[in-house]
Design a protein around this nucleic acid. Structure first.
Lengths: 118, 118
DNA sequence: CCGAATCCTAGAAGATACTG
DNA sequence: CAGTATCTTCTAGGATTCGG
């Protein structure tokens, strides 16, 4: 896999290199959800960024969008199979981050105070 | 873990939410390396972004920087223990991306052509 | 209720020149 | 060799307004 790093990291950044994608994937991991509920759960995301991020996820085949034939219209979003396996993979990073929160915090504090002295 | 998503995703984006961090971590995963070699291997990164990204990694305790007492000075960068466990976690996403490249590509093509029609 | 369109600003990132 | 400093460009993302 070594030789594919550049291309793969570019692809990954294209997938989740923005501010909200990861949060939305995790939120949708709790179940299919409508636009407004998603907006509440992923607060403080703006409508614009919610729409924009959802379009990106849809484009990558990670999220399925279905318009319910009601009035007023309701739109439901759900992870696809691809989205679910992605969530599983992403959970590993999430768990790592949780497990190492204190060490990360300590490293930052140490680095910052050392820099302040200089 | 569910309730920690917002905070964790923010933390993750702080760690690897920029353009070059992931690539550098992967590159350093192949072994300790000097500035110039790193710059070559992570091409086309600029000196500025290389320095800046390395400082960030150092700050997070993921990379160790050591100045060799030679003339001209040589500086070697290496993953710390924390950096290595992070790399392991990140590899899962990397592998997922590799395994699903075709499906991702197909989803994008399909989405884009559907949009073009409209 | 869901989302498109527009405007605007902060910060990311590239290019270039210079230093111990 | 390994940076720092400055300048410019570009784009992500927030605020707001409007439409079906």
């Amino acid at each position: 896999m070594q030789d594919d790093f550049p291309a793969l990291t570019l692809e990954i950044m294209d997938l989740v290199g923005d501010k909200w994608t990861l949060l939305l994937v995790y939120t949708l991991g709790e179940g299919a959800m409508r636009f407004s509920e998603l907006k509440r759960r992923a607060s403080p995301i703006s409508q614009k960024m919610l729409t924009q991020t959802l379009r990106g996820l849809e484009r990558h085949g990670m999220v399925d969008r279905s318009v319910l034939p009601t009035a007023p219209p309701q739109v439901e979003y759900a992870l696809t199979g691809l989205g679910r396996t992605f969530l599983s993979a992403a959970s590993v990073i999430c768990q790592w981050t949780k497990d190492n929160l204190e060490e990360l915090q300590a490293a930052r504090t140490h680095f910052d105070s050392a820099r302040l002295a200089a």
